[in-house]
Design a protein around this nucleic acid. Structure first.
Lengths: 220, 220
DNA sequence: ATTACTAGCACTCGAGTAG
DNA sequence: TCTACTCGAGTGCTAGTAA
């Protein structure tokens, strides 16, 4: 069944394009998957129950909306193949500097994270994050990066609360080494957070709204 | 079963690295695939019968060699995901000019091909091919390109013999537009053939052995 | 240790069909 | 037309076990 899920999502995504919405009957899906209408129907129900899709039974034909979980599955598979086939590519993201509200600083500075950054990334980060809003045209690339494994930083417990795990990706901006960091449990957002061992805003002479390109290495 | 084939090949390729050879017991494979040893054994037999792998029953552990068909499967899937997720990337190939033996000229000049080149590629090719031996480090990228669909040129019948179909990929060298052409039925080789509407050797001042970089667009 | 056969069972598929 | 239920058949799994 797992395979059917993957295959169906591939076909649905292909037909839905960038809007992730597709009108398709179970018979049509069946034909594309070379299976019976009944099985296609069962697969759709299954996808819905497992929150891969949303669906509305419009008039006659159903409308299927692909949810994040579906996209994650495809991007995950893509990354796995990239990794297996040793096609480590460098991705470029373009975006604009966004005003950080200082939350970054709060998290980064936590001993529980900072210790691991030094161990696993080999840098002692400047206590703060550079937030970049990624341009829409880079969405696919950003999703691809997000669904890769990256360098895992464990979550931990403060005496006050719980801090979740994050994952990091080696990157550079204008030749300056830095890391993208993503919370491990969070849904898609087009804002990325970047850390480095220096204050990037000064070093790169950035202010809110400045355009920049970030080169990300996914080596796995 | 199809899914098992794909999954097993993924795991085998991952363990085999660039040499495409791996020593693995059916029990180990079973563990990775989260299935029983017996099923893993059956899958291996199946892969062998369908020429995805070769195997020798060394001492105790078997030695598995991944064949072209396995790599093709993985690269095909990778391309499909690229296409579905609209991640058209530009690939760079590096290599050296190889002496063409004039066979290229014979094929290219055939009316059956030439007509289609004009129609489908929009160029009237110079009658000859630039042969480039691709450096080993670009093998993965070359395989990825080869397994993509490209622009299809139909095979045809001369009154003497049959000419097979070929597929083309838009590319450029130092800003000069050209096309990679691959016979549709042929096994992997590290030599690529390039056509353009001008004589590339003159235009780019190339001689045998000259280094060059080719940028290939896979847009699907 | 290995690989891989056989037997039995569980699961998934598609046909028929209802709503 | 659509979706999707039930049910019988067949496929493919795992356990046991031989070599």
């Amino acid at each position: 069944m797992d395979y059917n899920v993957y295959n169906a999502i591939k076909i649905l995504k292909n037909k839905s394009g960038s809007k992730n919405v597709v009108f398709i009957s179970s018979a049509e899906l069946a034909k594309e998957m070379k299976i019976s209408q009944q099985t296609a129907s069962r697969i759709i129900i299954n996808l819905y129950r497992n929150k891969f899709i949303d669906r509305t039974m419009d008039n006659r034909k159903q409308k299927i909306i692909l949810l994040e979980k579906s996209l994650d599955l495809l991007y995950y598979e893509l990354n796995e193949l990239h990794s297996i086939l040793e096609m480590h590519q460098n991705f470029e993201l373009g975006g604009n500097v966004k005003n950080g509200l200082g939350e970054g600083k709060y998290y980064i500075s936590k001993e529980g994270y900072m210790k691991q950054f030094e161990e696993k990334l080999g840098i002692k980060p400047y206590p703060g994050t550079l937030n970049v809003k990624v341009n829409g045209e880079y969405e696919n690339i950003l999703r691809s990066i997000r669904s890769a494994d990256g360098i895992h930083i464990e979550g931990f417990n403060d005496n006050e609360r719980t801090f979740g795990g994050v994952k990091c990706f080696k990157a550079h901006i204008d030749g300056i080494k830095c890391f993208l960091i993503f919370p491990e449990r969070s849904s898609y957002t087009d804002v990325i957070e970047i850390i480095a061992d220096i204050y990037l805003r000064d070093e790169l002479k950035l202010k809110d709204g400045s355009e920049l390109k970030v080169n990300v290495d996914i080596d796995n």
